[in-house]
Nucleic acid binder design. Structure first.
Lengths: 225, 225, 225, 225
DNA sequence: TATGAATGAGTATTCATTCAT
DNA sequence: TATGAATGAATACTCATTCAT
């Protein structure tokens, strides 16, 4: 069996099982037996379960970063120093992030994985992602800053994360939600459809009025942690 | 050791560990040894690990449902058949959901637990929550429907979930985000502060313009899954 | 099955297998299956393989240290401040060290274990022994110092270790040597017999003339490591 | 990469790792990765791990036997039928055994290996050494017999092994002992220095008075094993 | 009512060796 | 001649659960 075959089979199987059941709940036995590959193959090719998890993500994120950098290069060239509108930035982001999984017919899996990356206690994964892909996000955030000059920095930070939550939560839980939606509203829901619904919501959220300033002392007793 | 003591100690320890590391990553040994309780005590008092997980949630959700029903009763009485404004509904929801954990000084833990309930592969938990607490949510959703008569049902369904994602994602990942925010913007971030920031965003999102209608056939080839 | 039963069975089996094959070459499976005990029992009762190894040693060394301290107390009382002769010290040491394994009918095993403790790469074991039983040895060494006032400290240090080597090497490899000896010299060799043979050798070695002093510069090119 | 290169690299790395951690604790992966050689190379060039262990020893013992035979030839020629004195025999032995590792700057490694050969459960190794190099030892023992005509055969047998123990134990554990000695006595200890200290001790031990004869029946109940 | 002991099934990982190329 | 890939057996250890007392 050629290497690429085994490695690919492991990655393909792993990402599906991880997406279905989470990292801790998926054993290497689950993966290798479903992939019809020797149990030791994971450790041989990847070194450890942690490294396998990271490899699963890299297969999506490596091409993503590359394409996203290219896309941002083009946007900057087109706008020649002028500010790139927020909607354009969001649109580009959405298109690019969906491109790779769309080609691989694994949108659902990828979205679940993204959700897991945030919610599961895989510190190593968060660190890996931060370290490998932090730069693109920094570049993107800076462009968003230029597109929303009236938003205080802290407010922009939080709103970006609010929207990140919206998107990841929705797309990663898509299966369950879709089932309910189709039953209740007789609608066929596609990812593309959801993106259509998300756009006005995200834009409105980013442009929402600022909250009232904090009044001094008002929250003196507030329990924060 | 009195029973209530043991049971409480187990629940207190379990919720903290679950929140920190997730369900699968927390073993009964972790819990019982940290709670300084016999290893068999969990199975003795709760029957199984699954039942313990559900009990941890019930301790928050039982008083919540009770109070939320009461709060909605009062709102309906005050508005005497007229529509309750969306903002009032959201405000009431936020206040009630935060009340119980606030009293127990465990806001952070509760939010993490909520996030886990959605992201971790605990089918039994989702079913348990749906079954035990589905009624209040149905009642709330119906009131929201009356408050947003112009929103198509399907659109309202999705937007509510978009916002659920915003809130759960943000509050459950609060720790990490707070660290970044405090480092970058020298702001002390409290849960109450975040709720203040969330309000205008959620309202704006719910009131965002409708997306353009789907064009017939446009997505014939759309890859949905 | 009572605890003491399982624990004892594990210890009894473990010491025999360790003595026969070494630590690394003896798996927990070997031990538990031969002891007809559940595979998880070792980890339950001892925590880890390392801890089991240490427990095997403690079962010999704990009573040894206790008895040796008592024996030295008595010797000091008898000699009332006067120097205790070297032969008496060595005799007492030999008697005490052999007493415990003799009672348990496991002289051979104990001697092999002592040999392993020195030769196998179990850093944790050396540390454990040093830490738990270092004090008795220090006390003994000091008495030897008083019994051999003419020996330079460094010379005494090395000669004690020379003799330690003699004893441990011989007794721990006893089986093989005994087989050869019995075949070649038609002698039945008992441990007691060997101790009889060892005594004059050890005494002569300790009392051997000092080596000629090192001549300056003579070993300038000596390769030491 | 030339074969000799690979083979040498494996042997060089293996002996160091074996000496540091023992045979069982050193995996072929450890060796090949440190030697920067293909994992399969050991099995390819040596056939098995056991064969590699034997090869490591042969690299020292083959030249040793050859030289030792030559040295004994010369001694016998010089003494022309007369008895060769014990000290001369021991001196020759010591010089020859140290010559090869000294040339390769690996005295420490070789001594550790010798110690391991005796203590670790490598039956195949003991058999291999016995079989390949037994003859020289037999020849040497016979010369020692002639040099110590008053010693009963059995006594000589045991005393030779006592001294073997002294030497191997000391030199193979040299590192740890040296550290202690240098700390406590501010002495730089070289192998040559130790040999100087060993000589009078070994001679004295071989010439020690005979032990008192066994009294009949005295040890009838002696527990030998 | 509570617990220490025990257990069988499971975990990730490492091992020496083989094999196709 | 040499090697990357693969493998089956083994490793120590952890798991939730059960059971006798």
């Amino acid at each position: 069996m050629a290497q690429s075959d085994t490695v690919t089979r492991i990655l393909d199987t792993a990402e599906v099982l991880f997406a279905e059941r989470g990292f801790a709940e998926t054993s290497l036995r689950n993966i290798t037996s479903k992939a019809r590959v020797n149990l030791a193959a994971v450790n041989y090719h990847f070194g450890s379960k942690k490294a396998l998890i990271q490899a699963v993500f890299s297969r999506y994120l490596d091409p993503f970063t590359q394409r996203f950098h290219t896309a941002l290069d083009e946007l900057e060239a087109q706008h020649a120093g002028r500010v790139i509108p927020l909607e354009t930035l969001l649109e580009t982001m959405a298109t690019t992030v969906l491109a790779v999984p769309a080609e691989r017919n694994s949108l659902k899996v990828f979205m679940r994985l993204l959700g897991l990356a945030y919610s599961q206690a895989q510190g190593h994964l968060r660190r890996h992602i931060q370290q490998e892909y932090g730069d693109v996000f920094t570049r993107f955030t800076e462009l968003v800053r230029q597109a929303t000059p009236d938003l205080p920095d802290a407010e922009r930070f939080w709103r970006l994360h609010f929207m990140l939550g919206t998107v990841i939560f929705t797309l990663s839980g898509l299966d369950a939600l879709r089932d309910i939606a189709e039953k209740d509203y007789q609608e066929q829901v596609t990812v593309r459809d959801l993106v259509r619904r998300l756009r006005p919501v995200v834009v409105a959220a980013m442009n929402a009025p600022l909250p009232p300033a904090l009044e001094e002392g008002k929250y003196a007793n507030a329990q924060a942690r």
